[in-house]
Computed example of a mutant assay.
Amino acid sequence: MGVAIRDLISDYKTSVDWADLRGTAAVDGNNALYQFLTTIRQPDGTPLMDREGRVTSHLSGIFFRITTFLENNIKPVFIFDGAPPEFKSETLEQRRERKAVAETAYRQAVEVGDTVSAFRHARAATRVDETIIAGTKELLGYMGIPCIDAMSEGEAQAAYMAMNGDVRYSISQDYDSLLFGAPRLVRNLTVSRKRKVRGRVITVNPEEILLSDLLDGKGITREELIEIGILVGTDFNSGVKGVGAKTALKIVKSGKFYETFEENEPEFDPAPVKEFFLNPPVSKGYSLSWSHVDREGVVSYLCGRHDFSEDRVNSVLERIGVKSGQKTLDSWF
């Protein structure tokens, strides 16, 4: 879901060319998979599947996203979520309930032939489970892309790696990355450069947000940005009813963060959530190593096991090979 602070950030988004994104990047893996699973579907909401009925929408998304990255000299590392903090349990339970309702609504829409509603409910019912993640990791291995299992939130791990200088920036659609301290957040790295919004297809370009620009522009600290996020609601709390980003900014600047919760949500203690954003559990012993694309492994996995078009997969791999002229990634960077 992320944190709803778009109103504060709109003035600090900058469009960037793919050429400006050269180098290493930490990808919020769960966020990327959710994108692929919700968008790569048939008109009635049915995801792409192989002949055995296994979902392959995410594999298609990952394959074409990675090849686009490599063509644009981006070396990604995928970060996957670990164990959620205890105070996220309520949010997760609410999500499970909403998805269960959406699944029922999807089946009903399919039965009556309402494809528009079916597509909407299918997206709402999307789940990223262990099978999806395991298949993604296997494909990434064949593509020579490293993966890291975060101790907790993947965005926190990605932000730490960016702050540590091991990657240039974080890639995610969610603004939580900024609360976790990501110095540079990049969004909208879609292969098609298109996105469907409220029934309309719009053109989207990569955009970046520099945390320092946001903090300086609003005259706040990262700790205060976290307080704003907690007031409007995060993945770990529901926020204060009726408080949006602009109101939250005024509350924080007036020094009434804790007072506001005491008056409106007396049973909620924001301190643990704030501390989690400031000092999340992260792995510090990771190593990053990219390797050559295993052409045979990719073709066998996508085409042999999941019924992708061998001609199409090979044409994409050939395109990468022509660009590099060699078998390793070294010539791309």
Rank of each mutant, 00 (worst) to 15 (best):
239 G>E: 02
237 N>P: 05
256 K>A: 10
248 A>E: 00
251 I>K: 00
238 S>T: 14
216 D>T: 15
255 G>H: 06
206 P>T: 08
223 E>S: 15
247 T>H: 03
241 K>M: 07
223 E>D: 15
240 V>C: 00
213 D>R: 14
254 S>H: 01
205 N>P: 02
221 T>Q: 11
230 I>H: 11
217 G>R: 13
207 E>A: 10
215 L>D: 07
247 T>V: 05
222 R>L: 15
239 G>H: 03
226 I>V: 15
213 D>Q: 14
253 K>D: 00
209 I>H: 03
213 D>K: 15
222 R>H: 14
233 G>Y: 07
213 D>H: 15
226 I>N: 13
249 L>C: 06
242 G>T: 05
216 D>Q: 15
211 L>S: 06
255 G>T: 09
229 G>W: 05
253 K>L: 01
240 V>M: 04
250 K>Y: 00
253 K>I: 00
206 P>V: 10
229 G>P: 05
235 D>M: 08
237 N>V: 04
240 V>Q: 03
215 L>W: 08
233 G>V: 08
212 S>W: 13
256 K>M: 09
229 G>M: 07
235 D>P: 11
208 E>W: 11
205 N>H: 10
232 V>Q: 05
207 E>Q: 15
212 S>V: 15
223 E>K: 14
211 L>Q: 09
244 G>K: 05
244 G>W: 01
231 L>D: 02
227 E>Y: 09
224 E>W: 06
230 I>E: 12
218 K>D: 04
250 K>N: 02
206 P>R: 10
224 E>G: 08
208 E>C: 09
218 K>Q: 11
248 A>I: 01
254 S>F: 00
209 I>R: 04
251 I>L: 00
230 I>S: 13
240 V>K: 01
208 E>Y: 07
221 T>S: 15
225 L>C: 13
238 S>Y: 12
215 L>P: 03
215 L>V: 13
252 V>L: 02
229 G>K: 02
211 L>A: 06
206 P>H: 10
225 L>T: 08
219 G>A: 04
216 D>M: 14
243 V>K: 05
235 D>S: 12
214 L>T: 10
254 S>T: 01
211 L>W: 08
228 I>E: 01
229 G>T: 07
251 I>M: 00
208 E>V: 13
209 I>V: 15
256 K>H: 12
220 I>P: 04
206 P>N: 10
221 T>V: 09
209 I>S: 02
249 L>W: 02
206 P>F: 11
207 E>V: 14
229 G>N: 12
221 T>K: 08
255 G>E: 05
221 T>L: 06
253 K>A: 01
224 E>I: 08
253 K>W: 02
216 D>A: 15
246 K>H: 12
228 I>K: 07
249 L>G: 01
252 V>D: 00
217 G>D: 11
244 G>N: 02
246 K>Y: 07
240 V>Y: 01
240 V>H: 03
242 G>C: 04
251 I>W: 01
254 S>I: 00
222 R>Y: 15
207 E>H: 08
206 P>C: 09
244 G>S: 03
242 G>V: 07
206 P>S: 10
232 V>F: 07
209 I>W: 04
226 I>T: 14
247 T>A: 03
226 I>S: 12
246 K>S: 11
239 G>W: 02
215 L>E: 08
222 R>D: 14
208 E>F: 06
216 D>P: 10
